[in-house]
């Protein structure tokens, strides 16, 4: 290729702008992450083993669970469905909340972050979008696999496609709200590096209080814990999701409505998250912190 030809390809590149360019770059960022992941075939296989085995563990724990107690606490007697729905949804916690900051730390320490942020902000937004989508793709694959393994193990998830549409709507809402927290945290992370610790703690806390493998109502024994649990969006998201795919409750059900209302109360986070992120990125550019590590 001559230098002239090379220059021409650059001109091509310049044509990629606007929404189309944005999406194309986001797609590229998503695609290459995916390609890298799939190239590690052994990792892929072992991730699958990980998912199947953790599902199997709760399948067998289910044998020990008192179904009467489960029913008394307001769930169906199917513990496997109960636990696997929790595990499936909790797969989104890490990727939405901590992955972006984690990924940024890698890019910063590899020294590639600055160039990414410097070229133009459009590029950078595509990168973030691509990364968020990649994280969601990965989590969604593990989510779907967990649910499928659940079906195979006889978990009584709904088989009604319309109910699944509602469930998917809830999942998307959960992703959006938690990703907003993640984006906000990633922005703050550029300046406050110690935040990563807080972030990973947050995941543990949310997972614990969300009642992934035990019924939330048990927390009634310790009312303070119960109220803390209600402060977390994940708790509401999980309740909504469970009630939908196990009990097939419609959105108009009063119990569902309460949790939906509570979850929607966190929706402004989506706007705030993006703003906070932009604020910190600008601040970091002014202070020249993007490559300091």
């Amino acid at each position: 290729m001559s230098f002239e030809e090379f220059k021409e390809t650059l001109a091509d590149e310049e044509k990629i702008h606007g929404l189309y360019g944005f999406l194309r770059k986001a797609w590229a960022s998503w695609f290459y992450q995916m390609k890298i992941y799939v190239s590690y075939r052994m990792n892929l296989a072992l991730d699958i083993i990980d998912i199947v085995l953790s599902a199997l563990i709760y399948y067998y724990v289910g044998f020990l669970v008192s179904t009467d107690d489960l029913v008394k606490l307001g769930y169906t007697p199917d513990y496997v469905a109960f636990a696997l729905s929790g595990i499936a949804l909790s797969r989104y916690l890490w990727t939405t909340i901590a992955r972006l900051a984690h990924k940024m730390r890698h890019e910063i320490s590899a020294g590639t972050f600055e160039s990414l942020a410097a070229i133009d902000s459009d590029n950078f937004k595509s990168w973030i979008t691509g990364q968020v989508f990649y994280g969601s793709t990965w989590s969604s694959s593990t989510f779907i696999l967990t649910i499928l393994v659940g079906y195979m193990l006889g978990a009584k998830f709904t088989r009604n496609p319309f109910v699944w549409v509602q469930a998917i709507f809830i999942v998307i809402l959960v992703i959006a709200i938690h990703a907003a927290i993640g984006v906000m945290a990633a922005g703050m992370y550029i300046i406050h590096k110690q935040l990563e610790t807080l972030l990973v703690l947050m995941i543990s806390v949310m997972e614990f209080f969300g009642g992934v493998i035990y019924p939330l109502a048990i927390l009634w024994n310790y009312p303070i814990l119960y109220y803390i649990a209600l402060l977390m969006p994940f708790t509401h998201g999980l309740e909504l999701f469970r009630r939908t795919i196990i009990d097939e409750k419609p959105l108009t059900d009063p119990k569902i409505l309460t949790h939906l209302g509570a979850l929607c109360a966190f929706a402004p986070l989506i706007y705030i998250g993006l703003r906070v992120y932009e604020y910190y990125l600008m601040k970091a550019k002014r202070l020249g912190l993007l490559s300091s590590y």
Partner: peptide, 27 residues
């Protein structure tokens, strides 16, 4: 890598709490 150590400790402690709560409904 303090972050990961803290994560590890928190995770394990929460695991204890989780199984404590789970034990309420186990025969």
């Amino acid at each position: 890598y303090k972050t990961w150590m803290i994560f590890d400790f928190a995770n394990t402690l929460f695991m204890v709490f989780t199984y404590f709560l789970l034990s309420f409904i186990i025969l």
